[in-house]
Amino acid sequence: MTAGAHDGRRALAAIGVALLSALFFTLTYVLNRAAATGGGHWAWTAALRYLITLPLLLPLMPLVGGIAPVWRAMRAHPLAWFKSASIGFVGFYLLLAFAASSGPSWLIAGSFQFTVVAGMLCAPLLYRDARRKVPMAALGVGGVILVGVVLLQFGYAQGRLDRAAWIALACVLVSATLYPIGNRLLLLHLERTGETLSATQRVFGMTLASQPLWLLVAAFAYQQAGPPSLPQTWLAAGVAMGAGIVATILFFQATGMVRDQPAALGAAEAMQAAELLFAMVLGALFLGETWPHGVALGGACLVVAGIGLFAWLVSRPTPIVLPQEPHA
């Protein structure tokens, strides 16, 4: 098998893993929306997810190499881990939780698909090798998905967004940018240090590094709204298990598989666009949300088309020669 064919198979495998992660990530939108409509404070929604995620990860660690390698890596470079976690976990999820009360889960899921192009557009700021070049073909397909997101938003709002909706949309777009940046920063740090950590170990490390900030968020939430209700706590636990552990580990695994293939890395990140489809189905079935129609439905179809185009694109990747670094 040629190197190009091997890269193509690896890229398609990464897309499959990323699609599976999207299914579990969708729990974020559906359960956060349920918490918001139930009166739960957005800061509790954000803090509880990661405060609960940490103890849930502990039983998994002996199966994936243990905590010791993660702890050594964090002690050696605490600022790098704190920076990645602050951007990719704390900043990302605070903004997403704040936006959850602005509309149906599929609307937030659709807006978050700005991450399709955000990771690629940030590449020149993050990399110093061949990966700094924005893959134009992948960016073009990402643009198709982004147009679908815009149509989705304006179709739902019937051509106009009020002030609250614009604020929520801005929060989601910034959140969608922070998430891939945090992940890529950590991957780059591990490349430079030569440390080899599995996807689960990386998730555990970033979750642990973010705990001081989540405790501050929890203190703010308590001051604003008192203790969280039992239903909100259970909803946050569901997000922690489905999105915080299963989905995040799968996503980190997918991006780690193609860290040296810019188009495939962007495509793996873009598979989160499938969250829109999953959110539409789950929101309609369990939250009584309406299905998109008219212009919004057309936007959803463009998102689906973009997913198919990305899969086709990365099945024929162009090999890029990079220095040999250990893969996570």
Rank of each mutant, 00 (worst) to 15 (best):
A3M: 13
A3G: 11
H6G: 11
H6P: 00
D7L: 14
R10P: 08
L12I: 14
L12D: 00
V17P: 08
A18C: 07
L20G: 11
L23D: 07
L23S: 09
F24K: 03
F25W: 15
V30I: 08
V30W: 03
A36F: 05
G39R: 02
W42E: 11
T53Y: 02
L54W: 08
L58Q: 10
L60P: 08
V64F: 15
G66V: 08
W71T: 00
A73C: 09
A73Q: 12
A76K: 14
S84F: 02
G88I: 11
F98K: 13
P104S: 03
S105I: 01
L107V: 15
S111R: 08
F112W: 13
F114Q: 02
A118F: 02
C122N: 01
L125S: 02
R131M: 12
K133H: 11
P135H: 04
M136C: 01
A138Y: 06
G142Y: 12
V144L: 15
V144W: 11
V144M: 14
V147R: 00
V149C: 12
V150H: 00
Y156S: 12
G159S: 05
L161D: 05
A168K: 03
A168C: 06
C171D: 10
C171I: 06
A176L: 07
I181L: 14
L185Q: 03
H189W: 08
R192P: 07
T193Q: 13
G194W: 04
T200G: 07
T200Q: 10
Q201T: 00
R202A: 11
M206A: 12
P212W: 10
L213K: 03
W214Y: 15
L215E: 01
L215N: 01
L216V: 14
L216C: 13
F220N: 12
Y222V: 11
A225F: 12
P227Y: 01
L235H: 06
A236H: 08
V239Y: 06
V239F: 02
I245F: 08
V246E: 06
F251M: 14
T255M: 13
T255V: 15
G256A: 03
D260S: 13
Q261E: 13
P262Y: 04
P262C: 09
A267Q: 06
M271V: 01
E275K: 11
L277Y: 07
L277E: 11
A284W: 07
A284N: 04
F286V: 15
L287N: 07
G294A: 06
C301W: 14
L302T: 10
G306L: 08
L313S: 11
R316W: 09
L322Q: 13
P323M: 01
A328M: 09
